[in-house]
Design a protein around this nucleic acid. Structure first.
Lengths: 219, 219
DNA sequence: GCGTTAAGAGACGATGTGGTCTCTTAATCG
DNA sequence: CGATTAAGAGACCACATCGTCTCTTAACGC
């Protein structure tokens, strides 16, 4: 590790990328409270100086890591087979969860109610890009007649991602492939293919004053 | 909250219950790493002595709190209206999540991969009792013809609970009632009422060697 | 090349916290 | 009602860690 042969001194963006990677791993391994500047420095193979020169403390470092250090979401287009495409998206998520970014997400979720800006960053960098890719795919699949058009813009679309993430939180990684297939074939696709079973407002701009069902009064 | 006798000195079970309650609140407020014996003592209105007399450290205290300090799950029987009963169960869960127990669960989920015994305790005390109540209810509802019998013993049953918990983790409490209704009417009930859309092994004892679908090879 | 910048490594004092111990006194038991 | 147990409060020291600072030297600009 400390051999002089490969031990070139990094600067700028190259160093930055490794600091972000180290921060993600520290988050995954020790949780939010367990992240220390010294720990990140050691993991990144640098000293505390370069860290404190860039960020005032660990909160700022972690915030920047969420914004710039998470792997980007790739969004392949519609192939003509919506099941294959959805399977690809879900597997991509499962792979992401199995990486340090997944452990970091778990750690961050435990802090979001103390640091709401972390939740915003997580939404913006993790949830929304995936949602956009998913919706674009479903829109094409609906145009091709593979799924019911009414389901595209509803909460149904994210179901698979939500179930997969919750599974990761409770059972850890890696997620067996048959779990992904079950979510896809037994939950997601049936709901996307069927007509929404009740008429009524089902879009994101739902109107609670006209519920699709008679509402049972709360005890 | 404790004001009935003013500053009387509590002993035994009465004190214990308040220590558990204080631990849950500390977990919810400061996270797992943020829990300190001094903090729990102050919150419970006692000193560190009584804590260290009972537990060797905070790990043991938290483990006992998960095992004995969480509110019990009540499981009302089948009323003849499965939608009303499921709505009741989901609302009970939503109320539980909005209590300190919910915040504590969020904190614990971030620690489960470091302390697997916490996940076991959580499963045993939170997930399984709710699963049992749910399955008992669904079994009766299936016998009455309200839902499809094949769905009772599958992963479909827990869908509502899982979605509700994930929503709590990402958006916090309280969970608006219309979210619960959407999960119930647009996801859970349609899937429970319909025949599982593909023939093939769909029970908990699934056989991966005979997949219901031709499996797409992973990239 | 030569000078400038900043990386890598770690020493250092300040600070906060963890677990133990003491002491007084309320609650409980015979 | 006296004896015993343990609650409530906090002092105390050991220890870990935080953020700063120093020092050497590799990387980069001209």
């Amino acid at each position: 590790m400390t051999g002089t042969e490969g031990r070139s001194r990094r600067r700028g963006d190259r160093l930055l990328a490794q600091i972000y990677a180290a921060t993600l791993t520290e988050l995954a391994d020790h949780g939010y409270a367990g992240v220390t500047m010294a720990g990140v420095a050691a993991r990144a193979g640098t000293g505390k100086g370069p860290l404190y020169r860039r960020w005032p403390g660990k909160d700022a470092l972690i915030a920047d890591t969420v914004r710039h250090g998470l792997p980007a979401t790739s969004s392949p287009g519609y192939s003509g087979d919506v099941r294959a495409d959805l399977l690809g998206l879900l597997r991509q998520l499962a792979d992401g969860l199995a990486s340090p970014g997944g452990g970091a997400m778990r750690a961050l979720l435990g802090e979001t109610h103390r640091r709401p800006e972390l939740m915003s960053a997580l939404r913006e960098k993790v949830f929304e890009p995936r949602g956009q890719a998913l919706r674009a795919l479903l829109r094409e699949a609906a145009a091709a007649g593979e799924i019911h058009p009414a389901a595209v813009e509803t909460h149904l679309a994210d179901l698979g991602h939500r179930l997969l993430m919750f599974r990761f939180l409770t059972e850890g990684a890696p997620i067996p492939d048959h779990i992904i297939i079950e979510i896809l074939d037994d939950v997601l696709l049936p709901l996307l293919r069927a007509e929404p079973h009740v008429p009524g407002p089902w879009s994101p701009s739902k109107d609670p004053s006209t519920p699709a069902h008679p509402d049972t009064p709360r005890p």
